[in-house]
């Protein structure tokens, strides 16, 4: 297997390498509404042959939505497939997601001529989904264990000795909550 480097792109833009790697995928596999130099949303990495300045053989992207609902995109240079580049990119993307505290990544497979192949490739690597083209995989690490409570002596607080408390107790009254103005 080719030795690969994983290189983060600080300012990802649509360029020649991406056109060669991503644009080389079967028609319909990706939605590519970009022109040269367009900045690209999401976090991007390239898989490069040899060191960090080597030729780009693949790309990976994390698009993190609400609460760590993270979609992955991965693409491999069409002439260098079946050399382990895709597995390398997927594994690194899973590591990146886990490092951000994300528990699951998903991939939506668009309609194209190699759709079934991509589906099976992901299923073999642990992706599952109730909807055929929308697959999810557990990637996160174990959650942090916060401190457990222990008992100590603390005197109960007597409400009658502090009548000046300002806190409101009226749900949806007193200016704290206005449901229709979404103020609460």
């Amino acid at each position: 297997m080719t030795e690969l480097s994983w290189v983060r792109e600080d300012h990802p833009v649509w360029d020649d390498d991406k056109r060669r790697v991503i644009g080389g995928a079967p028609e319909g596999a990706f939605s590519i509404p970009f022109r040269d130099g367009d900045p690209l949303p999401g976090e991007w990495w390239s898989a490069r042959e040899g060191g960090p300045d080597g030729a780009v053989l693949g790309y990976g992207r994390l698009d993190i939505g609400w609460g760590g609902d993270a979609q992955i995109l991965l693409a491999v240079e069409p002439t260098r497939q079946e050399e382990g580049v895709g597995s390398f990119v997927l594994a690194r993307l899973e590591d990146e997601a886990a490092a951000r505290g994300i528990n699951y990544v998903y991939n939506t497979i668009r309609e194209h001529e190699q759709r079934d192949l991509v589906h099976d490739w992901l299923v073999v690597r642990g992706f599952r989904g109730a909807v055929d083209g929308d697959l999810r995989k557990r990637v996160g690490s174990s959650p942090a264990q916060p401190a457990r409570p222990t008992r100590a002596d603390a005197a109960p607080y007597d409400v009658s000795e502090d009548p000046g408390g300002r806190a409101p107790g009226q749900e949806e009254q007193g200016g704290y909550v206005d449901v229709d103005e979404h103020r609460y």
Partner: peptide, 23 residues
């Protein structure tokens, strides 16, 4: 956590929190 002692008497409050003004 050391302050988190239960207070189950009606109208009483643990020492670390003020009571609400109304119910």
């Amino acid at each position: 956590a050391s302050l988190m002692v239960p207070e189950y008497e009606y109208g009483e409050f643990a020492g670390w929190i003020a009571p609400p003004k109304t119910g």
